[in-house]
Nucleic acid binder design. Structure first.
Length: 329
DNA sequence: AATCCGGGGAT
DNA sequence: ATCCCAGGATT
């Protein structure tokens, strides 16, 4: 038996015993697989489950999603982050209704041409929903492959190309769905970033990093982008259980979401609270003021009942601010 | 090739 | 405090 066949059979035998088989999106429905894959981009499984169930309850199929108001789609995304994913889901649903008979195309290139779908998401849709032999290369697969084949310290583009090559070379033609799911499960349950459980790993006899006791050196660390500090000044006005909100512009952080009205410059008086909110590329200091005299000068604001907040797409920072200031204000 | 885009879990 | 998560689009 050659190395690739060993890799496949040992991985699939492990999956049959220990793999995940009951996640809510593990169904033969490309629509549901697609929604889950978008939500799972840079987002952990545990957090996605509740968002996924709420989303498909409201938009159970492609046509209903395509007909939806984008604001309602975004509202169901509140707190999940990377809100362009919600916009792209909506656009893709409309394209599928118009051009693909209201279903996702069963074609790698056509899938990748849709907004928000790259090679990994396209491969996941084809393999997980239709059991077609297309590879994926998410964070889990990268970690497993970089350790098993000891792929490290090279130029990023070469690193990525090499891992794609390995992912495609090793995929099972007989059980591609289970193979991809197995690699992801192995990466998230056994071949974890720190202190991998190599003694439980079905690939440990093949793993080059394990053989030389260097699993901690793989995968190579990502180069982190510098976080820039930004200070915002915002007004918190709550009256009769309603809060004054403003819809943000279509570009930048929290594009199109509802947040507190902001103003330029600072007023040292009337400062209610200063909140630190960290994003992947920004460190926000949000100074929250009460200054009802300014309210009349703020344009494009709407009073939103606090009990209706979930109907208005908003970042988690808004909830953080309301909770932090609530008792004092 | 580097940056933008959120939020939070694990350590 | 650091790393990174079922990444993709844009610059």
């Amino acid at each position: 038996m050659n190395q690739i066949m060993k890799f496949q059979s040992q991985l699939l035998n492990w999956y049959d015993l220990h793999g995940r088989k009951n996640l809510p999106w593990q169904v033969d429905d490309s629509y549901l697989v697609w929604i889950s894959e978008i939500m799972l981009q840079q987002t952990q499984v545990l957090k996605v489950i509740d968002y996924f169930n709420a989303f498909i309850s409201e938009f159970p199929n492609m046509k209903l999603l395509a007909q939806a108001d984008i604001n309602d789609v975004l509202a169901l995304w509140s707190g999940l982050g990377y809100y362009n994913r919600a916009r792209n889901i909506h656009k893709t649903a409309q394209i599928c209704v118009q051009e693909h008979n209201a279903i996702l195309p069963l074609d790698l290139k056509k899938l990748m041409a849709l907004p928000g779908i790259g090679q990994t998401t396209a491969g996941a849709i084809l393999s997980l929903a239709s059991n077609l032999p297309f590879a994926i290369l998410d964070g889990n697969v990268k970690r497993v492959m970089s350790r098993v084949y000891r792929v490290g310290e090279i130029k990023l583009s070469e690193y990525t190309n090499k891992l794609w090559q390995l992912a495609e070379q090793n995929i099972s033609k007989q059980r591609p769905k289970n193979y991809n799911q197995a690699l992801m499960d192995l990466g998230s349950l056994v071949c974890v970033r720190s202190k991998p459980r190599c003694h439980e790993c079905p690939l440990n006899t093949l793993c080059q990093a394990y053989q030389v006791n260097e699993t901690e050196l793989y995968p190579p660390k990502k180069t982190k982008t510098k976080q820039i500090a930004v200070t915002l000044h915002a007004l918190l006005v709550i009256k009769d259980e309603k809060i004054l909100l403003r819809k943000r512009g279509e570009t930048g952080i929290w594009a199109g979401l509802w947040f507190l009205p902001e103003f330029i410059g600072k007023k040292s008086s009337n400062l209610l609270h200063s909140i630190k909110h960290v994003l992947s590329h920004r460190i926000l200091t949000i100074n929250v003021y009460k200054n009802k005299e300014l309210v009349d000068k703020i344009q494009d604001c709407h009073w939103v009942a606090l009990s209706d907040l979930k109907k208005f797409a908003h970042p988690s920072a808004l909830v953080k601010i309301i909770n932090a200031v609530d008792l004092k204000y």
